[in-house]
């Protein structure tokens, strides 16, 4: 670990000013991922700017019927917030599927979006890794890659995005509110995270001097037909091998609208508009879901240890859509998949 300075931001403008003045600085809010990475010598900021006291902790309804979530709302508060539990239960479930209650108490909503991959090689500062050290090579492609990506990979990186919450936010088509030196802007969730291509060091399209201030949820919450299914190597407190967030709007047995996103399989939550198109207007049944799964996984490619993720994801998609269609979302505490 290398030492760093510590300063506190007095308001959002001050935070932006401070980070713009020091390119080696980083914001810290919950710290659950950043401090972990600093201790492993993976992140080496020379200054931490504490934004945890900024007034970004509200959850409020928007004029358009959605909800605006302050970037510093702790994950637990968000998961248990009455508005979220009632109108966006998919988001609640996905948050509670991740990490532990202690970590969720600490982690912020904005921080969850910018958490970094769990790829073993990214975490081990002695091995080559293009994400940690651009140009050094990807050790995972021919290494221990059981946890790595099968979709959207590149020759330079096969890391995955580890968040559960973001998989639900992708389905809910959240909007990320950010502020930088040039002012505020919004980023559609689908455009927030990047694929690795040949710049795997960049996880997101957030500029280095921008700060996330809020996450906006559009009005549509899919609170009746949804499910979040997380498949992992132990029954709790582990990252996803594959996770699926599914949300349906049904008219009897017919699908009016469908959204599906995958976690644990790509450098970002993975959606496919084509897959959702084939669901629309069809009967909510396993064969329909399987068609969507095929499209979602059309370009999937394994790297040896993680080949199984393709078939696993296919089955998980069908199961999750089935749970959503039946209105019986996966329980967080009862681990049986119904």
């Amino acid at each position: 670990m290398i030492p760093f300075q510590y300063t506190r931001a007095s308001d959002v403008a001050d935070a932006i000013k401070q980070i713009a003045a020091d390119p080696s600085a980083k914001f810290i809010a919950g710290g659950t991922n950043l401090l972990d990475l600093i201790k492993y010598d993976v992140a080496t900021p020379t200054r931490l700017i504490d934004i945890s006291r900024l007034p970004l902790r509200n959850v409020e309804e928007t004029a358009t019927g959605g909800v605006l979530i302050g970037a510093l709302v702790p994950n637990t508060d968000l998961a248990y917030h009455p508005l979220i539990e009632a109108r966006y239960p998919l988001l609640s479930r996905s948050i509670l599927a991740g990490a532990s209650q202690q970590l969720r108490n600490m982690a912020s909503t904005g921080g969850n979006l910018v958490q970094r991959t769990r790829c073993f090689y990214f975490y081990d500062a002695t091995t080559p890794c293009n994400k940690r050290e651009p140009g050094s090579g990807c050790s995972a492609i021919s290494g221990i890659n059981r946890i790595n990506a099968i979709l959207g990979t590149s020759q330079s990186c096969i890391a995955t995005h580890p968040s559960d919450m973001c998989v639900a936010l992708a389905v809910l088509e959240a909007i990320v509110h950010v502020t930088g030196p040039a002012g505020a802007r919004t980023i559609a969730f689908a455009d927030f995270h990047r694929l690795p291509d040949n710049t795997p060091q960049l996880d997101t399209n957030l500029e280095p001097d921008e700060i996330i201030t809020a996450i906006e949820l559009p009005a549509k919450g899919f609170s009746t037909n949804y499910s979040y299914l997380k498949i992992r190597d132990r029954l709790s407190y582990a990252f996803a091998l594959v996770s699926v967030a599914a949300a349906l709007e049904l008219d009897g047995d017919t699908i009016k609208e469908a959204r599906v996103a995958l976690g644990g399989v790509a450098h970002k939550p993975w959606r496919s508009s084509a897959a959702e198109v084939v669901l629309r207007g069809q009967r909510a049944e396993a064969s329909t879901f399987a068609n969507a799964a095929d499209i979602l996984l059309r370009r999937a490619r394994g790297f040896g240890h993680n080949d199984f993720k393709i078939g696993l994801a296919r089955r998980a998609i069908v199961r999750t859509l089935g749970q959503a269609a039946r209105g019986t979302p996966q329980s967080i505490s009862d681990k049986k998949i119904r």
Binding site: Y6, I28, D50, S52, Q102, M106
Partner: peptide
């Protein structure tokens, strides 16, 4: 919370 991932100054 996990005190190991919490900076005292914060």
């Amino acid at each position: 919370i996990n005190s190991c991932l919490t900076l005292a100054v914060m």
